[in-house]
């Protein structure tokens, strides 16, 4: 069973503000879902490696995938569109509120 304080903490980490009603609802749902996930405890995985990419061995030249981190100029039209998408901006810059 997950408690309210924990749900609140997760919501903070996930940057989602919850109402008191949502908090109660999610607490109940998360407990049921996490219980269900607990089924995996019965599987013995002591000598098993995790799979992060299902078909990694098909990527033959792994060296080719990793490129040098050299910044390349973006198409100015795309750049303009990207900045245009921001809700708050000043000239060519995206405007944000103060961190503190």
């Amino acid at each position: 069973m997950i408690n309210k304080k924990q749900v609140n903490h997760i919501a903070e980490l996930a940057r989602i503000k919850l109402s008191e009603r949502e908090l109660k609802k999610f607490q109940k749902e998360f407990s049921a879902i996490l219980d269900f996930f607990g089924l995996l405890k019965e599987v013995n995985t002591s000598k098993i490696f995790p799979t992060f990419h299902p078909l990694e061995h098909y990527l033959e030249n792994k060296a080719e995938i990793i490129r040098e981190d050299i910044p390349e100029p973006e198409d100015p039209k795309v750049k303009e569109k990207l900045i245009e998408s921001a809700p708050s901006k000043k000239g060519k810059h995206i405007k944000v509120k103060a961190v503190f």
Partner: peptide, 14 residues
């Protein structure tokens, strides 16, 4: 307990 465990069980499923 959860994420890494799931990725290991994923190996078994595969």
């Amino acid at each position: 307990a959860y994420y890494l465990k799931a990725q290991k069980v994923r190996t078994l499923i595969k």
